[in-house]
Nucleic acid binder design. Sequence first.
DNA 1: CGAATGACCTTAG
DNA 2: CCTAAGGCCATTC
Length: 114
Amino acid sequence: MNAKHAYNAIFKVVNLIEQGKVASYGQVADLAGLPGRARLTGKALGHVPTGLKVNWHRVLRSNGQIAFPKGSELARLQCALLQEEGVAVFNNRVRMKDFQWQPDLYILLHELDK
DNA sequence: CGAATGACCTTAG
DNA sequence: CCTAAGGCCATTC
């Protein structure tokens, strides 16, 4: 599997995350068939092809923290986007217990197997 | 081609 | 709560 396919798989998984829910980089990597490559997820989200819409703001660190330094432009943006979707963000962080995405395995297999 | 660099993770202290 | 260390690996320099 080359990098291009990996990126596609990642984008696909990220776009499957439902509104009002969040997932971690590692979780996305796993579901995309890239176990142990959480960093690649971050890499991918940092190089989204222009014109392609990706729900990057629903992806957080495994502990629920936003991956950007607090106060940075991107952090503020991600915060705002999440709150618009009903996800409570406190001090640059989300309570994973309350908002973590529970993937629908049926849809997941159906979507990724093509 | 080797070294540095990340939108990371987990465990241990 | 925090730091440190070890693992991961595509991309860039």
